[in-house]
Design a protein around this nucleic acid. Structure first.
Lengths: 107, 107
DNA sequence: CGTTTCCCATCGTTTATCGATGGAAGCACG
DNA sequence: CGTGCTTCCATCGATAAACGATGGGAAACG
């Protein structure tokens, strides 16, 4: 039931989910859903392509490991460059939101 | 230089530009650019398809007229249904923004 | 055992936006 | 009068992002 998220924000959301430490894909999806109180519902078919992008750009690294309960899982970790990217996307996002709100509050 | 706007928000922005009265396409683009202080830069090739969508959905109507300086121009006007749509999109947008900000402020 | 939960991932489709392009009509200027 | 700038319309093809459907394997759970 949770609606589509705003396109263009997925990479930022994923990077943001990794600031507190590495997570695996499934964990990222759950984290987003939980923190947003079910507003954001990222399907895995959106998530994994996003993670591929982030890997390609060097914004995260991946490492196989074991999840809390003995299952194999691929942990994604924010790199220094990823942190910069996150900051940049955040700034840009705020800029946009502000601009949009100016328009919306009429003037 | 003004960057891409957030995808998915264009319809809302266009509808929002019409709350104060009818405008023609070119005027909408200028209005957005001006109010947002050059942050939003909607190309006409993004704008006209959007206007077509809005027409198809009955959220705006179009009427030919003359612009301030003797040029032929097509004026787009918000309908009642368009006003409802705008309100709905606004609510949804706020919901998303709030959710995203929750994620971004860590937690 | 069978089912659920966890966790990975790909493929094909859809949809939005953009860049490039084209045209016509008024205006300003030399 | 011609040239070019601004205004205003619009379409087309490419690109990229996100989604739905789908598939599979391995641990845990009853």
């Amino acid at each position: 039931m949770g609606n589509d998220l705003l396109p263009g924000t997925l990479d930022m959301l994923v990077l943001g989910s990794l600031t507190r430490g590495p997570r695996h894909g499934y964990g990222i999806a759950q984290h987003l859903k939980k923190i947003s109180e079910d507003v954001l519902d990222v399907g895995e078919s959106s998530l994994y392509p996003a993670l591929q992008r982030l890997l390609l750009n060097g914004w995260v690294t991946a490492e196989w490991g074991a999840s809390e309960n003995n299952r194999r899982a691929r942990y994604y970790k924010l790199t220094a460059s990823g942190r910069k990217q996150l900051a940049a996307e955040n700034r840009e996002f705020d800029r946009m939101i502000l601009a949009i709100q100016k328009v919306m509050s009429c003037a």
